[in-house]
């Protein structure tokens, strides 16, 4: 991944920073320039909750090139306690442990490597609680 593309997203990926609409209170993650709730363009920066639950999940057996060494690995759509949803790996567990509705905690982990001499890319993953 080109470094500028990675660097730009670090507030979201490292610190779960989101944009809360000053008008209607809807939280956008990642931050957007236009609120999907009301069309407003003014936001406060807020930190997302690190607790949530599994909405749906899968285990990836055929992985993209940069993830082949990790396969099989599990991926879920997680809904945080503040209502925000995102896609994340669920780690430190076996695929059989996953169920819709199970609670998870969001943790900071290595996600992928750019290439042999490039940057190491970090971000959020989920663990079962």
């Amino acid at each position: 991944m080109p470094s500028p593309r990675y660097w730009r997203e670090t507030p979201q990926r490292y610190r779960l920073e989101a944009a809360k609409c000053k008008q209607c209170g809807k939280i956008s993650f990642p931050p957007r320039l236009v609120c999907l709730g009301c069309g407003n363009k003014d936001f406060d920066t807020v930190k997302l909750s690190d607790k949530g639950k599994i909405v749906t999940f899968t285990t990836i057996c055929v992985a993209p090139t940069q993830f082949t060494e990790e396969a099989p690995y599990s991926i879920a759509i997680v809904e945080l306690s503040d209502g925000v949803r995102f896609t994340t790996q669920v780690v430190d567990c076996t695929p059989e442990d996953l169920e819709i509705g199970k609670p998870v905690k969001i943790v900071f982990r290595k996600i992928q490597e750019e290439d042999k001499t490039g940057i190491i890319c970090y971000g959020y993953k989920a663990v079962l609680t």
């Binding site: 899968t58 990836i60 991926i75 879920a76 790996q89 819709i100």
Partner: peptide
């Protein structure tokens, strides 16, 4: 790219999550 693919999801993976939700 930034919020699905970055995490390691594939197209079969996205449809698999739709399937799992539909089954549930």
């Amino acid at each position: 790219q930034e919020y699905e693919v970055y995490q390691g999801v594939t197209f079969p993976g996205l449809y698999a999550m739709i399937a799992r939700a539909h089954m549930h």
